[in-house]
Design a protein around this nucleic acid. Structure first.
Length: 499
RNA sequence: GAGUGCGUAGCUCAGUCGGUAGAGCAACGGACUUUUAAUCCGUAGGUCGUGGGUUCAAGUCCCACCGCACUCACCA
């Protein structure tokens, strides 16, 4: 059902009909042999009034300035903006009539000489013009633009059109992701796709989204991690494997969390977590150079230097430095925890250590820094250090308190894996635990997975760091928004009765 | 989930102590062949987020709800 057109839309529909009456398709036809506006600008002679090349360009009308028999338009494509100079004496009668029907926001294609006006503005002196798409919606105010955050997120296309830098930032996102692929592909990794719908949402500690398969009549979960399927592929002999894909976590939304986000997980047979440190440095520095051309970048009012090698520090040493006690000294840790108002009673010592670490250490990590060798009980998918069963061969990489990467020497002992899946730490809710029994995964490990290193990188956070974006919403085209009006799937549809 | 703030024309925003809803841009009609957010003359355009309440009178005060933002909580 269409809404009743408002008065502004009605005016545009009236022009649309006038264009049709001229025998012209207001929605446009193909427009061949055009060049980008950025490229057209480069063809303009330095000196005003000197003819340059004939160019064909197309784009959206952003500004118009009607001087009667002379009209100026500014059009924009994704490479830039250029002024059109349209004199009645330069175009035929039908074109002039068409030009009278143009509105801000319409798409046009033009051909003409590129040269500077008397005032030095690079312009296309139009000889031919055609319409390539009518716009029925009134654009935002020409000077102040569109500012309403809610409108810009719900109608991201307006943000992309009218706010400078938004499209450029999103295109840098694409470049960063292709850089990651290039780095991995050049090292012999293969990209795969694994299921999004999981019978058991494992591989991370997060609450899943629940859905339902009608024909099978079973509940399914949207994946919260890529880990367990990629490791099955390691068992199958896919020695260097990665996936870049969407994962879903049913948690709160804020400047660094969107319910669906992109991550990559990478596994390398016969490597370990130190192999993954080198790989992390390579992926991030390659991407940083592609996005910024330098390894020194701004992060708000702070600076980040990604020059290799990055610092490394053991978890236990950082704990001692910032929390002020040895993490193996349970009484001392409990005392520090109490001071920080962290619950102690009935909770596993490693859970308390983890809370104290997050409260005292993480925000102090400027980075980039690899924090290594975690308390083992928090890491049910990680290999223990040989001869040190309380320490897991894991690192997390931090930059300005933000977790950028997480990697393990992968646990490939099926019997230990099965035991760890069974072990729920006291003080940790089941949904907050990584330990979820997955017999099929344990069966895969029994077949034999090679010793291996595995690495996970939150792509959105990496892009935030590399594009100096303080909000995850700035680098996701369509972040989740609550529907403005009731609609979409009903609760009954979303969670059908399961017998 | 809690607290604070915001929601007025298509857009950007005013709206005083509760007293007839305003401006600029955009639109429509007119003038204009070197404008740069052109300028000038004229016209039209409103469910003040939604629903209640108080009041002679509500954009304004009160209550509930919806959406957004920020802070906090949650977020291996």
């Amino acid at each position: 059902m269409q809404d009743k057109p408002d008065r502004l839309e009605a005016a545009r529909i009236e022009k649309l009909q006038r264009i049709e009456a001229l025998g012209i398709d207001p929605w446009g036809q193909r427009f061949d042999n055009h060049i980008g506006i950025g490229a057209a600008r480069e063809k303009c002679p330095e000196e005003s009034g000197v003819d340059g090349d004939t160019v064909r360009v197309c784009g959206r009308i952003m500004l118009q300035n009607d001087r009667g028999k002379l009209k100026f338009f500014h059009i924009q494509d994704w490479s830039g903006r250029i002024q059109l100079w349209i004199s009645q004496k330069d175009v035929d009668e039908k074109t002039w009539a068409l030009i009278d029907c143009l509105d801000l926001g319409d798409q046009v294609g033009v051909e003409g000489l590129v040269k500077k006006t008397r005032t030095g503005e690079i312009s296309v002196f139009v000889k031919q013009l055609c319409i390539l798409g009518k716009s029925l919606a009134t654009p935002p105010e020409k000077f102040h633009g569109a500012k309403d955050v809610e409108m810009l997120l719900r109608q991201r296309y307006l943000d992309l059109i009218y706010n400078e830098g938004v499209l450029d930032r999103m295109l840098r996102r694409t470049k960063i992701i292709s850089s990651i692929r290039n780095t991995l592909n050049s090292r012999g990794f293969v990209e795969v796709e694994t299921p999004v719908l999981h019978a058991i949402a494992g591989g991370a500690a997060a609450r899943p989204f629940i859905t339902h398969h009608n024909a099978l009549s079973i509940p399914l979960y949207l994946r919260i991690a890529l880990e367990l399927h990629l490791k099955r592929l390691m068992v199958g002999g896919v020695e260097r494997v990665y996936e870049i894909g969407r994962v879903f976590r049913n948690e709160g939304i804020d400047a660094t969390h969107n319910p669906e986000f992109t991550m990559t997980e990478i596994y390398q047979a016969y490597g370990n977590y130190e192999t993954m440190m080198e790989l992390t440095e390579a992926i991030v520095t390659d991407a940083c150079l592609v996005a910024n051309g330098t390894l020194q970048v701004q992060w708000g009012d702070k600076a980040i230097d990604f020059t290799r090698p990055w610092k490394r520090a053991r978890y236990g040493d950082l704990f001692k430095e910032h929390a002020g006690c040895d993490m193996r000294d349970q009484e001392a840790v409990a005392a520090v925890a109490k001071k920080l108002h962290i619950e102690v009673a009935g909770r596993d010592p490693d859970v308390i250590i983890n809370d104290v670490f997050e409260a005292t250490v993480e925000d102090a990590l400027i980075g980039p820094i690899f924090v290594t060798d975690y308390p083992a009980k928090m890491c049910p998918l990680t290999k223990r250090k040989w001869g040190e069963p309380d320490i897991a061969e894991r690192f997390e990489c931090f930059v300005w308190g933000m977790e950028l990467a997480n990697a393990y020497t992968e646990l490939n002992d099926p019997r230990l894996q099965e035991e760890l899946f069974r072990t729920q730490l006291s003080g940790l809710a089941e949904e907050d635990s990584m330990a979820k029994m997955d017999h099929e995964f344990v069966q895969a490990l029994k077949v034999g997975m090679p010793a291996a290193g595995g690495l996970g990188i939150g792509i959105d956070r990496l892009i935030m760091l590399l594009t100096n974006s303080r909000s995850i919403r700035d680098i996701i085209y369509f972040p989740l928004m609550k529907p403005e009006h009731a609609g979409g799937a009903t609760e009954a549809e979303a969670q059908p009765a399961v017998e």
